[in-house]
């Protein structure tokens, strides 16, 4: 029983992802198609398991597609933050001294920025395209990764196998990519997993305000917004996407924290 409970977050995440990526083609109604005969219909209407929204689009398939877009944005943005953060942190940790100092001061200064507003600013400036949503988020979310990788790098820098490799004349690039980064892969992976739910939140936040993903595409944030607009007549439209979003964020956070505690202890 206890083992089942421990495995619950991973199973839920898997379930949501598999449903979002595999199920939509098998549903009778596409997420963009309007069913004129069933507008704002309740759950269990024939053909619409969870009912339809106020213009007659199937809620189940909209939620699944929204989940797909949200997870896609999250994974892409987390990858961007992984790339920037790892390189920045590895370089700072490897060089040490003054370069390290300057690089980490920059990270500190950026931490003090009201980062959500910077992302919104980026959205306003470069238009609201889905590509920019995740580049913008990833460019802001890399700070923690940079700090973590730098800390690991500083510790590894003094380890005999790195020193030996250096003494044998290996180039810094070779040492960083072949020796140092693979050695901290577990820690990086754990923090990557923790970045994903944060990005999910940011993306939904932006989409909720109308600054993220644009119609006819949809995302969990947009669905929550639409649901909130007509929750008085149709609470399901708020509960379903909201529930998926919250489940996803909670389960991913729990998973990430568990991995972090196990791999960094």
């Amino acid at each position: 029983m206890r083992r089942l409970f421990n495995a619950l977050p991973a199973m839920l995440v898997l379930l949501i992802l598999v449903a979002a990526w595999l199920l939509p083609p098998f549903l009778p109604w596409d997420y963009r198609i309007i069913d004129w005969d069933h507008v704002s219909s309740p759950a269990f209407t024939p053909g619409h398991l969870l009912g339809t929204d106020n213009v007659g689009r199937d809620l189940l398939s909209r939620t699944l597609i929204g989940t797909r877009i949200t997870t896609m944005v999250a994974i892409a943005a987390a990858t961007v933050s992984l790339l920037i953060g790892t390189l920045w942190g590895a370089l700072a940790g490897w060089c040490g001294g003054r370069i390290d100092n300057v690089m980490m001061r920059i990270v500190d200064a950026l931490y003090a920025l009201p980062f959500m507003f910077v992302v919104i600013l980026l959205m306003v400036v470069f238009g609201r395209s889905i590509l920019l949503v995740f580049i913008g988020i990833g460019a802001v979310e890399w700070l923690t990764m940079a700090r973590v990788v730098r800390g690991q790098m500083l510790a590894l820098r003094q380890r005999p196998f790195i020193l030996a490799s250096e003494a044998a004349g290996a180039s810094p690039r070779f040492i960083i990519f072949r020796h140092a980064l693979p050695n901290m892969a577990a820690v990086i992976l754990a923090y990557l997993l923790l970045t994903v739910p944060q990005v999910v939140m940011v993306e939904s936040f932006l989409s909720f305000l109308g600054l993220g993903v644009q119609e006819p595409m949809t995302s969990l944030g947009i669905l929550v917004k639409e649901g909130a607009d007509d929750m008085d007549v149709f609470p399901m439209a708020l509960m379903v996407p909201g529930g998926v979003l919250v489940t996803l964020v909670i389960c991913l956070t729990l998973l990430g924290e568990r991995l972090r505690d196990r791999w960094t202890a």
Binding site: L245, V246, V249, T253
Partner: peptide, 22 residues
């Protein structure tokens, strides 16, 4: 508390309004 920190305000806000207001 872990659940609370994971609940985004744009979900709790409408739900609170739905329950306590509507």
């Amino acid at each position: 508390m872990t659940l609370l920190t994971a609940l985004p305000t744009f979900v709790t806000g409408p739900i609170l309004a739905l329950v306590f207001a509507l």
